[in-house]
Design a protein around this nucleic acid. Structure first.
Lengths: 140, 140
DNA sequence: ATTAACCCTATCGACTTGATGGGGAATGGC
DNA sequence: GCCATTCCCCATCAAGTCGATAGGGTTAAT
């Protein structure tokens, strides 16, 4: 299941994206518009900043703004930053690989192969949808 | 992430499947062979029984056995029983649908549409892999 | 009757999630 | 130089989930 954190993150990003012309947008504005706890949103935007998607300006007139072209920000990037691995088992994760503690041999593990297929098909969807696209769809 | 519960469930099923000719198989045998806590496995097998995949025989010489043809047991069935919905948001779940509390309108929700695509592609993979197939692959 | 095995309920510690509070540090306006 | 504004960081909390365990009850074959 998609965590609220990730959902909030996506919503905040689409908000920022569709108000890009306004310059930097303060947390308070987004949190009110999207009904997200101010403090919780803070940690989310911070993560997105550390992940290189957003940047911020402090002080009066400050706020968050997109650092990358929204056409180049993909759902897979956002979800990885906020929820971690996309794969359902660590042993097929591209960005967070880890050996399964129980499985002795990945080569002969049926679950491994199955989940590899699942990961590929999921990733295919998530990598082709950009923030720009999602924002456009949502504003209709 | 795939829970241990589900992973154990799949492993237990493949074990039962590949030892089908032996008749009913006791929990203790499976738990030892697959290194799964006896008691935990108990609840898992019980769930699979309630789900109509397994059946059991009590008393001496008893144990669990497949109720359905392993060619007709799909990964999607097993995962649904043990982990719940396959969809990443309740509002696109086929078997566990629920309206999202925050989202006012599913029609204009970009997340909804995205996750619908993800669900479809995931399901396509999980529905075409049967227990029989997985068991064969694992035994190599 | 005894025993092997399934079945059910309850509990526990560890971890995660979502939310909150209290301060700091930087920036811009005056 | 001061002050309001805003981002930043830390610590904590309640609720829920996960994996595991314990104890006892029920069924059925020998």
């Amino acid at each position: 299941m998609l965590s609220k954190k990730t959902k909030y993150g996506i919503k905040a990003l689409t908000y920022i994206c569709s108000h890009e012309s306004d310059g930097a947008i303060p947390i308070a504005i987004i949190s009110e518009a999207e009904n997200i706890s101010h403090k919780f949103l803070e940690t989310i935007l911070l993560t997105l900043k550390k992940g290189g998607i957003l940047s911020s300006k402090k002080g009066k007139g400050g706020g968050y703004y997109l650092l990358k072209d929204p056409k180049e920000v993909f759902m897979s990037d956002i979800i990885r930053l906020l929820s971690g691995p996309i794969a359902m088992v660590p042993c097929v994760s591209l960005n967070f690989y880890e050996k399964c503690d129980d499985c002795p041999d990945e080569e002969t593990c049926g679950i491994n192969r199955l989940m590899l297929e699942v990961r590929d098909s999921t990733l295919k969807v998530l990598k082709q949808k950009s923030l720009a696209q999602l924002t456009m769809e949502s504003s209709k």
